[in-house]
Design a protein around this nucleic acid. Structure first.
Length: 280
DNA sequence: AGCCAGGCGGTCA
DNA sequence: TGACCGCATGGC
């Protein structure tokens, strides 16, 4: 157990905002599985209390303390709506997730609520992962899922995503898809590559690129973001630029700029917590 | 019962 | 392209 004092950081917002599915809150403490580690973290007066054998350097990477948050928030601060979000949820940071786990997690997210996504990931880990400590399981390897029986995958309530998860696992474990290569690809090429996988469209690809690969110019357009854009129609050229979901993504990139991924996450969290609160 | 949830792929015009 | 539909599953 040790302490860490990050610059501008809010643990609750960061873990609760819906970007990551492997953390659960119990009072002041969060417990999460990251890789093969069960980690417990809480925050008191800005200071992190960390119960883990992992070093501070790990958490600096994981919680992206290297992101200059004031600078980023200043650059995306384009209107009243985002301005309210970045002030109210100050300290929310994106997370550097594991690409493989993030890829499967967001393939499981389609047309599902967050609790349902968490349930599927928990079941997958319980059935195919390693038990790290009482009740906590690692996320299964690509090889394990590639060799899994569809009937066993079925027990994880994957529904129509079943075969696609297995196919993706086969692609990764066979080396056909090299997840490390995507780090070095420019955003749009990495995105095109991900979208060649069955079950990955623009939205899921953007989530993986944003939450695992640190492509901050990704702007995932899900049902909440779509509703926010339609409700507030914050841009003058709204009707021309945002006719379809695909165009909403392009619009977000152009409107908020190279850090639009952060803008997306602030807007998403604000919408989930507050709904369509009026702007004054 | 019907609609929605961090969608996607196929089809048809 | 754009609109519609089916796809499991569970909560409301």
């Amino acid at each position: 157990m040790y302490r860490l004092k990050p610059e501008i950081f809010n643990l609750n917002y960061t873990l609760d905002c819906g970007q990551v599915f492997r953390w659960e809150r119990d009072g002041d403490w969060w417990t999460g599985v990251v890789g093969d580690q069960v980690i417990r973290v809480s925050q008191d007066n800005g200071e992190l209390l960390i119960d883990s054998k992992l070093l501070p350097e790990f958490f600096s990477l994981y919680f992206r303390f290297d992101d200059n948050l004031p600078s980023i928030c200043k650059s995306i601060d384009r209107d009243l709506l985002i301005n309210r979000a970045i002030r109210k949820y100050r300290g929310l940071r994106l997370i550097r997730q594991d690409p493989w786990e993030c890829l499967i997690s967001y393939m499981l997210s389609t047309a599902s609520s967050i609790p349902m996504i968490q349930k599927r990931i928990t079941l997958l880990s319980q059935l195919f992962g390693q038990e790290l400590e009482e009740g906590y399981f690692s996320f299964p390897d690509p090889e394990t899922l590639a060799n899994a029986d569809l009937s066993m995958l079925d027990e994880c309530k994957l529904g129509f995503r079943n075969e696609r998860i297995k196919d993706a696992a086969v692609e990764v474990s066979s080396g056909d898809l090299d997840l490390d290569v995507l780090f070095r690809l420019e955003y749009k090429y990495a995105r095109d590559r991900l979208m060649r996988i069955r079950g990955i469209g623009e939205k899921v690809a953007d989530c993986v690129l944003l939450f695992a690969y640190g492509k901050l110019e990704a702007f995932p357009v899900d049902t909440h973001i779509r509703q926010v854009i339609q409700h507030y129609h914050i841009d003058d050229n709204f009707f021309e630029d945002c006719a379809s979901l695909s165009k909403m993504g392009d619009w977000g990139r152009g409107y908020f700029g190279p850090y639009c991924g952060y803008a997306q996450q602030y807007l998403y969290y604000q919408k989930r917590v507050e709904g369509f609160a009026p702007l004054y």
